[in-house]
Nucleic acid binder design. Sequence first.
RNA 1: GCCCGGGUGGCGAAAUCGGCAGACGCAACGGACUUAAAAUCCGUUUUUCCGCAAGGAGAGUGCGGGUUCAAUUCCCGCCCCGGGCACCA
Length: 816
Amino acid sequence: MPEKTYDHTRIELKWHERWGNEPALYKAEEDSSKPKYYVLEMLPYPSGALHIGHIRNYSIGDALARYMWMRGYNVLHPMGWDAFGLPAENAAIANKRPPREWTLNNIEKMKLTHRRFAFSYDWDREVTTCEPEYYRWNQWFFLRMLEKGLAYRKQALVNWCNLCATVLANEQVVDGCCWRHEGTPVEQRALDQWFLRTTAYADELLQDIKLLEGSWPERVLTMQRNWIGRSEGAEVDFQIEGYGPVRVFTTRIDTIYGATCMIVAPGHELVSHLSPEQQAEAKRMIDAAASQGPGDVEKEGFDTGFKAVNPFSGERIPVWVGNFVLMGYGTGAIMAVPAHDQRDFEFCRKYGIPVRPVIRPVDGPIPDVDTMKEASGDYGIVENSGPYSGMTSEEARREMTARAEREGFGKAAVTFRIKDWGVSRQRYWGTPIPVIHCPTCGVVPVPDDQLPVVLPRHIQITGKGRSPLDEVPEFVNVACPKCGEPARRETDTMDTFVDSSWYFYRYCDAKNSVAPFDRKKIDYWFPIDQYIGGVEHAILHLIYSRFWTKMMRDLGLITNAEPVRKLFTQGMVLAGGVKMSKSKGNVVDAAGVAETHGADTARLFALFAAPPERDMDWTEAGAEGIHRFLGRVYRFVTRNVGQPEPGKTPGDGSADSRVLRKLHQVLRRVTQDFDSRWHFNTSIAAMMELVNQAYLDESNISAAAMSQLIEVLTFLLAPFAPYLAQELWEEQGKTGPVFKQPWPAYDEDLARETEIEIPVQINGKIRSRISVPAGLEKAALEAAALADEKVQALIEGKQIVKVIAVPEKLINIVIR
RNA sequence: GCCCGGGUGGCGAAAUCGGCAGACGCAACGGACUUAAAAUCCGUUUUUCCGCAAGGAGAGUGCGGGUUCAAUUCCCGCCCCGGGCACCA
């Protein structure tokens, strides 16, 4: 056959059209005897266009999905849209178009690009989170949590961003600033907010990290552990004269005789009993803390004049307010032990509060107050501590905690860093919170049969002040479901992280109109076998998802305790060595790349440029190199398919064994890369080596070897370059989707080298190379090396101390 | 400050279990084909020294030590870059 020029546009558009008429091509089977495999990429926010970062994410998942199909699995590979969120509202303000219209337009555009790249999604299961069919179940879950006490309302200091004009979750505060507006300090405001009780699952979320070890990146697990932040210690009451008891949390009760003052947070209840001047000072601290960035903030505080009594020693110590004591952690009050805590040390030294060491190292003297430069946080032997003196820190902790419990002024306690999830947003473009505020009945849940509470379509969005829904009387004014009297609908909407906390369950039963999903379908598909996405979701999305799963399990809706079996976090795509961003104008648009280079080239390059977990740089020249490779493949196949005449073996047959050996080596490499570490860059490099070898031996390959080569090469390409693979499949006169063909098994015998070159080292330096049959044993290898001419010349007259012969690797002769 | 990653040619990278450092690709250079160019095909390409040459000798994976016949790989101590957490009592 004459070779054909690789015209990616012709090939890709041809199959694009054909596949467009085959809606069932990527359909997951509902009833299958095959083992299931659920592969999922994180769903995108419909910002308007897919960029190369998306393409990298989906190329990894798509290669895996296609590979698993070829391995005989029933693959579920869905896609959807994380469609609620702030940018739609911002766009609405800027363009005067409703958020819904903007969002759905974007989805339409992006879906075209998705299809242009031929990602193998079962679009019948598409989930769009801003549709009432989806978000009604957010509301339904919310009501279930309300019933269980897992959703509750409280007034709390919340993070407020002036630019967003809304409340931010703690997790959305980055370095004291809004996560979307770097440099905009977050302020503190008191509002009534809805919370989900994530802390109810703090222990289990931490414990179950064990189940994920080995199949989630260690880095993600560490981040989650830190985020949950479990500390064991004790709570102890200090009596305050003229006020009452104030409880502190400490992990170092063994140092309590060294407490020289108590410090409470500026937001502590005690502060409301202070003078107006002092209260104003505390308020100033709260606002300052909210606006302060990272790094060391100067510790400051003031003496309240109150005295607290140490329940162990009876000592009266001053009570201070300190800006470094957090209201949101522990009890919002601490006992300061400056000798053994660095923060307390700095504070007390600054304000002249005494420092009193009560712990000495096991093998040394107790620190000297006058020469101490910093606190000593080590455990040791307790001193100057009444009846506890002489005990180890460990013993003292046990004894003191026991006494506190016995005498009722304290107890052992565990504190977590993780906080309940504030889900209220004063936003329009989100799930309405399904409750009604009745002047007589209070907070009344919307009855299930009145779900969904639908967002009004036509609405004025200004991006300012309170929720836009407040301005829609027909939404706000309702009859109380309990008493029928006029009432007001809740106008806050839910955090969009709610949407993404369970969307992957909905894929299993996307069109269910009577329940979020049918449990039987979840039992079949869950857990997700492989989840792939950016590491930026290591904490928020992935903790909320885990929380949601446990909550649904406790509602009896599902049986799995964790949503995701294996997690893969891919690296970022950089352009010119820097992060792609709209402001830099260096975002590489996916649709444009498909046009100029082709979808296959873009996919393959996204996998070739670096191992998938690492950041990679997008370069035009690199993409062209991949395009050249695909062209080499295409031309080779088209000119050799059906050639030469069957039965004829040109040359001496050595070309066949070389090419087939390489073929099976590469097949082994690619198979192993899929099954273990996903270093597709080396898989693709191996395919290039194969093609290079095929070019060198091209004219001497027999018909049988050629047809095997072409077929297996087509299979090797199928997970990575679906268009080209399908075209080559057709060139071979075959029909049907190539990615549904069985993945070929590699042949170890064919892959084995017959003759290999072994380097011979003398004293660790390579001095010669010998060619030996593969598999030659140690003794024979050693003899062959010693018989080598060059080696003989070099060892002549020297004493051989030792010979290390490693079959298949090398020989090292140690001489003196 | 603490916790993770990472540091290898001009560039992206490879070396999977301690065994040939630099596979594969980019860029560059040379050759073939062409009136010419593009495309394509075939080569060269870590570096220093010796040699006209074939070839030979040395150095080299951030820095300094160590273990080993042998270290990009293991151990100890540093430096730099990226990310996460950061008064968590």
